[in-house]
Design a binder for these strands. Sequence first.
DNA 1: AGGGCTATTCAACCACGTTGAATTCATCTA
DNA 2: TAGATGAATTCAACGTGGTTGAATAGCCCT
Lengths: 196, 196
Amino acid sequence: MESSKTGRRPGTPQTKEAILDAAVASFVQSGYAATTIRGVARAADVDPALVMHFFGSKDGLFDAALREAMPVRELSTVLAGDVSSLGARLTRRYLEVWESPETGPRIRAVVGSIASTPAAAQIMRDFVGGELAAPLAKSLPCDQPEHRAILAAAQLIGMAFARYLLAVEPIASMTVDELVIFVAPSVQRYLTGDLG
Amino acid sequence: MESSKTGRRPGTPQTKEAILDAAVASFVQSGYAATTIRGVARAADVDPALVMHFFGSKDGLFDAALREAMPVRELSTVLAGDVSSLGARLTRRYLEVWESPETGPRIRAVVGSIASTPAAAQIMRDFVGGELAAPLAKSLPCDQPEHRAILAAAQLIGMAFARYLLAVEPIASMTVDELVIFVAPSVQRYLTGDLG
DNA sequence: AGGGCTATTCAACCACGTTGAATTCATCTA
DNA sequence: TAGATGAATTCAACGTGGTTGAATAGCCCT
C-alpha cells in the first residue's frame, strides 16, 4: 500500500537541519517580517507544527537560525600586533565582515531584520540624511563638508544605538557629561579636523 | 430612539486626532509589532476599518504617527557659535534629545520599532558586549579599557548602521579604504588616545 | 513482545491586516 | 427647500499567519 501520511518519517532525522537551512535562507533574503513559518515549513517539505515543535516560536527559529551568524572569531586575530595601528586594522576587519559575500548577508539579516517596517527605516533615513547631515554640512567651513557631516552623524548614531537600544554596559550607565567628554572630540575631528 | 450604530458620527470629526494619539501611545509603549490596528481602534473607540480608511495601512499609521516625532529643529540652534567647540555642543544637544522625557520616548519608538523581534536585539547585544567589546577591552594596555572598548564599538556600529542599513550618502558609496582613513583615527583615539 | 520517547502530521483556533459594501451625516447647489 | 455629493463611519467577511492539542508512526530499550 501507500506509505502512511502522519507519524514519524523514516530515515535519519536531518529534518531539523533542513528547517534551519530554509530559515536562514528566508530570513536573509526576505527579512524577519516577510518570513513565515508556513513558508519555511513548505521549503523544508515539512508541517508548520514541526517547526514550532523544534523551535518553539518564530522568534526562537530566528534565534536558532542566526545566532551563529555573527563571525566574530575573525576579529580576534586582529588584536595581535602593535597597538598603535590597531584602530586601522580593527576598522578594516570590521568592514570586511560586512562586505564579505559570505558573512555580510547574514549580518545584515540580523541587523536588518531589526527593521520591521519600511516606514521606520525611511523616517530614520530622512532624519539622518536630510535633517541632521545636510544642514550640518552647510554650516561647515571646511573641505568635504558632506563627508564630514555624515561621519559625525554616524558617530552619534552609533553612540545612541549602543546606549539606548542595545543598552550595553558601560555606555548605558555613563552620564551625559562623561559621554560628551569622550565622544565630542571624535565628532569635532570629523567636523573640522584632519581627515587624513 | 437609540442613536444609530453605523454611518457618520455627529459632532466635530476629531476622530483622526484621537486615532493618532492612541497610535503614538501604543507604538511608544509597545513597539511596532505589539501594536495592532484593532487595538488602536479600540483605544480610540472606533472601528478598525476607519483606521485603514484614514491611514491606508499599519505602516502608514506608523508613519503618520511618528514622522513628526523627530525633533531636529532643536539641533539647528546649536550650529551657531564658534566652530572650535561645535563637537561638544552638538554631541550634548543630540544626547539631550534622547534623554528628554518629551522627545526621548518617541525617538526610541522610531528607532526601536525597528527592533521587531527581541531575538535580534539580544543577538546584537551579545555580539557587541560579549564578543566585540569584552575581548577588545582585555587586549588594551590602557586605563579604562571597558570604556574605551565600548566607545570604539559604538563608533563602528554607527558607521555600519549608516552605511549598510540606512544607506545614506555619501557614506554608502565610500570605498572601504576611504572609510578606514576617515574612521580609524577615531577608533584609535578611543583605544589608546587621551579620553579627556 | 511490549512500553515509552520522539518525530511527524492533521485539524483547528484565534488574532490580525485588509477589503468592499452599506449607511449616515454635513454641506453645497439648484 | 429639496436633492445630490462626498466624507465619515460601521459591519461583515476573507485570507493568512502564529500557535496549539491531539493523534499516529517509527525507533529504542528491556
